[in-house]
Design a protein around this nucleic acid. Structure first.
Lengths: 288, 288
DNA sequence: GGGTGTCATACCGCGAGGGTATCGCCCGTG
DNA sequence: CACGGGCGATACCCTCGCGGTATGACACCC
């Protein structure tokens, strides 16, 4: 038996991931910008080279085998690693070092201005570009689009990232001013039973409340179509027609600064150190 | 300007990594099993596509640019991720699940037999294959050759891995029986000044003491050519002509069980849990 | 039973990747 | 200082594999 080459081209991985995500050769081919037959062949060839059946197709439906599931997961990670290598290499070559920080609008607990100021005052500081993105910030760090990101644990997945905890926050429910619970001083999660809780990008609830950006979410709340449970620090930025009410038993959220574990950049290390220092000072200042 | 494709074929990465490691096109080409001209072209093309100079070649020597260094590091990681994807997919497809554990001969602090027995008694346990390797065990986990490994922190690099601490050990110096320090009840690192310390695979000391396997190291110690500082648990397996003397101020070593952070396997989770449990019991038994 | 949608097969053309031969350059060395 | 050796780049050719179009096989729907 031929041992089979121990590697696979990224093109093949991309193809497989597309099919595995779409579960449909035609759509996947369109998404990849190629015709369907070459795609079918590529997948067959991949299966032959791996010596493993990846997809079960029965002329009507396509579904993943056990092996297919693993290759989807692992392939996505591998592709992210390749993109990261490319992007980081490009950045390293363009001279002029800088840091890219991914943040969520309003999701910095107001720490960001102070962190940026403190870091800029550091000897040897490099320019910091802020890129805003509501979702995907973890993926941006993993695939090199950003050097670091502000994430909310445990809402967001931290696997593969090194983290520094900045701030632990309790959560509040965001409600329209006229809501039956808006006057309460405090709520419990049980009080929110029956309310449409979109809970960010996770399991999409019945009414297909797909939230991509916090403005959308706040709009839905104002319309009475959703109720959001978010970190307390959001309260400062609420629209005038919304109120935040503490939810006593909602699990606390931790704001973390995350970066790739294997990062070797001096500038990043200094930034992390500064951010941690600023967060520590802020925590002391708020409750001494 | 063409934005340039945001990805790169693994073949190109392999080629670049070979050249970057060899710093010599001819040798790299031989290692890759291709001729030198196509390799030169491939690298040039890669540089053009990334829009970045990767190597500085001046007709006599080849050296890495800043960007080249990053691509070497990141490319190696990306290639490991691809191999891992391939290997794990193959294993997932071959039915018959099992676990592969990488260990160093003599490096298990005698915990392994008990861990294996305890795990085998677990409901739903799968067969566990042990693969021995003195170096590289971390890499084996990262690239999918093993599901888990026993590593010694901080001697070995744990980035990218999830770990469970099993045992913290003090270290002993291994000396020939006739050595001037062999009779002492305890040493300090200062006592070892001037002794040839190979300290495992790290910085190779002057005499090019490249150690690949612990038997070699012990042999060198017996010959008076080296002195080793190793975890205490080694003492049980020493050759008759060697003795171990505690080194008071050597940093303690931690034996950890490491596995890929994003692992999703039930069997692995159960194995980790069992190993931690066994280690905890052993620690209590030894100093109650 | 025709129509439609889906994946597989057949066949073809072109371009990228690999091979050989050779150049240009630098650096030893006698 | 001329010459040879070593190394990477260039020139040229050829093959193989990727992608495209056309078509087949099959299942499901009305």
């Amino acid at each position: 038996m031929t041992p089979g080459d121990d590697t696979v081209e990224t093109r093949e991985l991309t193809y497989f991931v597309a099919v595995a995500e779409e579960l449909h050769f035609g759509r996947a081919a369109r998404r990849l910008g190629i015709a369907q037959p070459p795609l079918s062949r590529a997948i067959q060839q991949l299966e032959r080279r791996l010596g493993v059946r990846l997809l079960e197709r029965d002329h009507r439906t396509v579904e993943l085998t056990e092996a297919g599931e693993t290759l989807l997961r692992e392939g996505q990670a591998a592709l992210a690693a390749v993109s990261a290598a490319v992007r980081r290499t490009r950045r390293a070559g363009r001279g002029a070092p800088s840091l890219v920080l991914a943040a969520k609008p309003g999701g910095d607990a107001d720490l960001l201005p102070e962190i940026l100021a403190a870091y800029a005052a550091t000897p040897g500081a490099v320019p910091v570009d802020i890129v805003f993105s509501a979702l995907e910030r973890g993926a941006m760090v993993r695939d090199g689009r950003a050097d670091a990101a502000l994430l909310h644990a445990p809402r967001e997945d931290l696997t593969g990232l090194a983290v520094e905890e900045l701030l632990v926050e309790s959560q509040v429910a965001v409600l329209p001013r006229g809501h039956r619970l808006a006057g309460r001083a405090e709520l419990s999660m049980a009080d929110l039973d029956g309310e449409p809780l979109p809970r960010w990008p996770g399991a999409v609830p019945e009414g297909s409340l797909r939230i991509a950006e916090s403005g959308q979410l706040m709009h839905l709340v104002a319309l009475g179509r959703a109720v959001a449970v978010v970190p307390r620090s959001i309260q400062g930025n609420l629209r005038h027609d919304l109120v935040g009410v503490p939810v006593a038993d909602a699990p606390p959220t931790t704001l973390v600064l995350a970066w790739p574990q294997d990062a070797r950049s001096r500038a990043l290390a200094a930034f992390v150190r500064t951010a941690a220092e600023v967060a520590r000072r802020a925590a002391h200042a708020n409750r001494p």
